[in-house]
């Protein structure tokens, strides 16, 4: 028998974060919630007298798999916001219905069967697991080793991009830049020639106009720039001298 309180804590710890899979907008939030679910499952394993598996669960899932997910999320861009509006007609309701029906069926079936409950607890400590793994299931373990190696090689193949042409030298980079008519020199730094010595303020050209592209693009996306509004206002209204302020 397992602790009832423990069960409900685990249930809450798994089901509630799992729901974020359906409702959270940002993938990072989802990933963090799933980490919680994994921790909850680890707790469940320990409760079900499988302490070694619980540890493995934490190490493999929260430590490796979910971190891998986060890496990939960073690679493809955290910005990949998802519009939750459904695009395929009927997919949402049929999908929800199907998933709910699946869950309902499973629950009702489990409720209808009577399963034996052993008095003896299985020994889930590392020693027992090790004996089982490397004795009875040693062949399976070896096959799994192949699977893992294959997966590793597969991942390498999938993510590998062969270099089709030689790496550009600095000279070539510069030539290309001149050819397309870009600035041959570095862009002006933000905040230079400005009173505000700050990154979020555009530089001013000799005429006193703000140079928009001197500000970091990232700040523009985040709407964290000053946009040089005050300088433009000063240019448009000559009566307002700098000294007046």
């Amino acid at each position: 028998m397992v602790n009832t309180v423990m069960f409900w804590i685990i249930a809450a710890l798994t089901v509630i974060p799992a729901l974020s899979l359906l409702f959270a907008r940002k993938a990072v939030h989802v990933a963090m919630s799933v980490v919680l679910v994994m921790v909850g499952l680890a707790a469940a394993y320990v409760t079900l007298s499988a302490p070694f598996l619980g540890m493995v669960q934490i190490v493999v899932y929260t430590g490796a798999v979910m971190m891998l997910f986060l890496f990939v999320l960073m690679l493809v861009g955290v910005d990949q916001r998802e519009d939750l509006k459904e695009t395929i007609k009927g997919q949402r309701w049929i999908g929800l219905l199907a998933a709910a029906g699946l869950g309902a069926f499973l629950v009702s079936i489990i409720g209808r069967v009577t399963l034996p409950t052993a008095d003896t607890m299985p020994s889930g400590d590392p020693e027992a697991v090790a004996i089982a793994l490397f004795d009875r299931y040693v062949l399976v373990i070896e096959v799994l080793g192949f699977v893992l190696i294959t997966a590793a090689v597969g991942a390498l193949v999938l993510t590998h991009t062969p270099r089709l042409r030689p790496r550009k030298t600095q000279l070539e980079v510069q030539r290309d830049r001149v050819r397309v008519g870009a600035d041959p020199v570095n862009k002006p730094m933000p905040g230079v020639y400005a009173r505000h010595n700050a990154l979020d303020v555009p530089a001013l050209d000799p005429e006193g106009k703000p140079i928009e592209h001197s500000v970091s693009r990232v700040l523009e996306i985040r709407h964290q720039t000053q946009e040089g509004a005050e300088f433009r206002a000063a240019l448009e209204d000559p009566s307002r001298k700098e000294g007046d302020r």
Partner: peptide, 28 residues
């Protein structure tokens, strides 16, 4: 065959539900 992976997945799940329904109703 709309090319949408999720539609195919939906078909699979619906099929699974139907299979379970048939097996359970037939078996029990």
């Amino acid at each position: 065959q709309n090319g949408q992976v999720r539609s195919y997945a939906l078909t699979m799940v619906v099929g699974l539900v139907i299979v379970i329904l048939v097996v359970v109703q037939g078996g029990l």
